[in-house]
Design a protein around this nucleic acid. Structure first.
Lengths: 293, 293
DNA sequence: AGGACACTAACGGCGCGTCAGAGTCA
DNA sequence: ATGACTCTGACGCGCCGTTAGTGTCC
């Protein structure tokens, strides 16, 4: 099949197809006359590309998806990023509306610096900084704390430190096995699952005693597994140690979390609650010492 | 003031400021040493630019806004366009989610061709095709009819004819006085007003008799004005005639509306209702013959 | 033989970021 | 004299669109 027919079948332009070839997404055979012959394989790839492009997926992400065995995870990540950009656009739209009503540039500056850009930036960078969907998990986890204003120079500094940290982490190449593990670990988990997890965690923290009472059986079982010697032989345990070590060395505990506490009052309160809950927990189950971070 | 200070005051980078100068948005004085001296005027312009850029407004639109005496209209238009793009992004996101759940390219193609691209294209092109906020008015007016699928070759043809028409109209230079009139005419009207107008129109069409009964006084007054000889002397009347002539010559009635009828069943029904309402109206007020189009 | 099709190659466009190199201020 | 600043200029990015010129199929 030659290019013109390919274009009609895949709803693409010649230039687009040509570009995808240059990007190495397809590699049709070239005949003696220089004409390209597109086979079924190319067609289906191109159809896939066409769909993804129309959904706003960029070439490099498409490359990832085409090569990926776990497309759901990659797509989930992209969907989450899209949601972030939609939220940002909505905030921008709201600001535009206010400007249309009364053209007050100073007020708009206030409104914008109140967080249109910066807080979304952190959420986005979180997604990219860590491999697989782990970054997305963190973004969803910390997202609820990232809705406050940056209204002091302290917070501005904290913000730029966090951004630097995230860029730094994104450029690190963490141990290969850890990377692969993280890519698989959150693979089946979807955005909504992550959100549910978080709200469940929140409500558990709000009434620790009740939570412990309600889930006594499960908890004790879990603790037994986690404190058992067999668990320390599992890959999961090793990976967890690897992850911990990585985060420690990258500055997760020394840079990221402390600055997040400066940036977000609500996160600060969350941490207090968490610490209290931890105390209650340790009192009840002293054997879990050192288990929870 | 030199550039570095400008950058901190306006939250812009040097390159950005430089670029805006190259685009002719500012023109600071250049001293003997080649250094630029930024005055208050430049600063306030740059702050304005910075705000607008952070709201996603492009340079050419910023140029328009900076020069415009009626910023509200321009901003309203941009806000509407942004809303369209948000709606589109939401549709894309929904499709991404479905793909993440089950990676079915064929189904996604269906879903996309069902209207993610095309119908939004029409709405957008409508905004751009006509000057001022008149295009936006038309987009809001016809928008509700543009939510159906393009599921036949007839509709595809109608779609491309409409697109061609809108591109064609956008390239026409219509009479200067008409352009100016349209720019001012819808100036104070906001998006929400336009939407209200439309729904009011809809409900009026759904029960014509009631509407006529309820608004008897207003209607008769309106008719008297519109049929009076004095009205024909007003600029409004002349403009209306100009607009009519323009639309007739551009193919609004010969190309746009007929193809819209093919594209949208709901518009077809709307037109039928409108025709019926018109008949009722003419029966009641025969003197309005030829008034309503 | 002519028109529809294929190929390659170069440039454009948005909104700047990112060097590189040379000059200027305090 | 040093370091922080300024200038100009070229190239890059993502995703192709748009000519333009040349060769190939039917």
């Amino acid at each position: 099949m030659w290019i013109n027919q390919v274009c009609t079948e895949c709803q693409l332009t010649k230039k687009a197809v040509e570009y995808y070839e240059k990007q190495g997404l397809i590699s049709p055979e070239v005949g003696g006359n220089g004409y390209r012959e597109y086979g079924e394989k190319e067609i289906s790839t191109l159809q896939e590309i066409a769909v993804l492009r129309k959904l706003g997926v960029g070439i490099s992400d498409i490359r990832t998806i085409l090569a990926s065995t776990n497309k759901a995870a990659a797509l989930g990540k992209l969907e989450y990023l899209m949601e972030l950009s939609i939220q940002k656009a909505s905030a921008q739209q709201a600001c535009l509306r206010r400007l249309a009503e009364s053209y007050d540039i100073a007020a708009a500056r206030e409104y914008i610096s109140a967080g249109i850009d910066e807080l979304f930036t952190i959420k986005e960078k979180l997604v990219h900084a860590f491999p697989g969907t782990y970054g997305m998990y963190l973004s969803i986890h910390f997202g609820p704390f990232l809705n406050e204003r940056i209204d002091s120079s302290d917070k501005e500094e904290a913000y730029s430190r966090i951004v630097d940290y995230l860029d730094h982490v994104g450029n690190l190449n963490l141990p290969r096995e850890l990377g692969e593990f993280l890519e698989n670990c959150f693979a089946e988990m979807h955005k909504t699952d992550m959100e549910k997890m978080n709200s469940a965690m929140q409500s558990a923290l709000d009434n620790v005693d009740e939570y412990i009472a309600d889930n006594k059986g499960i908890l004790e079982e879990y603790i037994q597994v986690r404190t058992s010697d067999e668990y320390k032989e599992t890959p999961a345990y090793k990976m967890q140690q690897l992850l911990l070590a990585f985060q420690r060395s990258s500055g997760y505990y020394d840079i990221f979390l402390p600055n997040l506490k400066i940036l977000s009052k609500s996160y600060c309160e969350y941490m207090k609650k968490l610490a209290m809950a931890n105390e209650v927990f340790m009192e009840r189950y002293p054997q879990t010492k050192g288990l929870i971070t």
